[in-house]
């Protein structure tokens, strides 16, 4: 079983800063894991992705600042 978290809330970003504008659209979310809520980026968003509060996402990695990166699980 992979490490998973649950989306507490989210937004799909269409207008980013210089550092992230090449990634748009992309998703940031508050993800709950073991009752701890952290801000995360969720990779793998496409126009077909139906994002919902309460959906599970899979832990992918930590960024260089130790912020969590998750990804959408395709078969949900």
């Amino acid at each position: 079983m992979s490490r998973r978290g649950t989306i507490y809330t989210y937004s799909i970003i269409h207008s980013g800063t210089d550092s992230f504008k090449d990634k748009t659209p992309y998703v940031v979310a508050l993800v709950e894991e073991d009752r701890r809520i952290r801000l995360a980026r969720v990779e793998g968003y496409t126009e077909e992705t139906q994002v919902n509060i309460g959906m599970e996402v899979e832990y992918l990695a930590a960024d260089e600042r130790d912020n969590p990166i998750f990804r959408f699980i395709e078969d949900q």
Binding site: T9, Y10, S11, F20, Y26, R41, D63
Partner: peptide, 23 residues
């Protein structure tokens, strides 16, 4: 570091608040 560095913009933070409010 914890927000902007991850790609969160200021509008996206209030967008997350809006989606949670809807919920």
């Amino acid at each position: 570091e914890l927000e902007a560095g991850l790609g969160a913009t200021f509008p996206s933070i209030f967008a997350m608040i809006a989606n949670r409010y809807f919920h």
